[in-house]
């Protein structure tokens, strides 16, 4: 069924057992917190990010949403944890491209790892926003963190 291209086993696994879920807030660290909403469906994600020396030291999140948004946020967290912001943004750009591809791209598995399982989402325009919710929250937090470091 067409549905299986959307709900790959990896996605359902992340949905049922999401990684980095549950907000961490170490008072000794500078945490950037962002809250993103998908106004069309009401899905929400709150994301805490600790960046030091341009590297993602700790990412955690909480939220409510569909399997796609929850799984995608879980996969994203795995991918950016421990990476430099430059590397993380490279992954983010590649993922955004995949989501915009309308099913024409399979995705760079070396770079995107589990996130290639989300390739099928790009064929369902209504779900692309779900898949991007957590990623956009990360991008926002990372940019805010950078700003904070400069000032």
């Amino acid at each position: 069924m067409e549905l299986d291209s959307l709900y790959q086993e990896v996605i359902l696994d992340h949905y049922k057992r999401p990684h980095h879920k549950g907000l961490m807030a170490d008072a000794s660290k500078q945490v950037v917190q962002v809250h993103h909403v998908n106004p069309s469906c009401g899905d929400e994600v709150t994301l805490n990010l600790v960046v030091s020396d341009d590297r993602v030291e700790e990412i955690s999140w909480d939220g409510v949403g569909c399997s796609i948004s929850q799984a995608s946020t879980s996969i994203m967290s795995d991918l950016v944890q421990g990476r430099t912001l430059t590397q993380a943004f490279e992954v983010l750009d590649s993922f955004s491209e995949l989501m915009a591809s309308k099913g024409t791209v399979v995705g760079d598995e070396g770079l995107l790892e589990d996130a290639v399982a989300l390739a099928g989402v790009s064929k369902f325009p209504a779900r692309v926003k779900c898949a991007l919710l957590g990623w956009m929250a990360f991008k926002d937090a990372a940019l805010q963190g950078k700003e904070g470091e400069k000032s």
Binding site: E2, L3, Y7, C41, G42, G65, C66, S67, I68, F124
Partner: peptide
């Protein structure tokens, strides 16, 4: 099961339903 996921499966059977907050967020 999130409504969005319910709607997606129903769509496979040609069933069109509405999912989400229905422009009534306070009620949700």
């Amino acid at each position: 099961i999130h409504p969005h996921d319910v709607g997606q499966v129903l769509d496979q059977y040609g069933i069109a339903v509405r999912t989400g907050h229905h422009c009534a967020w306070p009620l949700m």
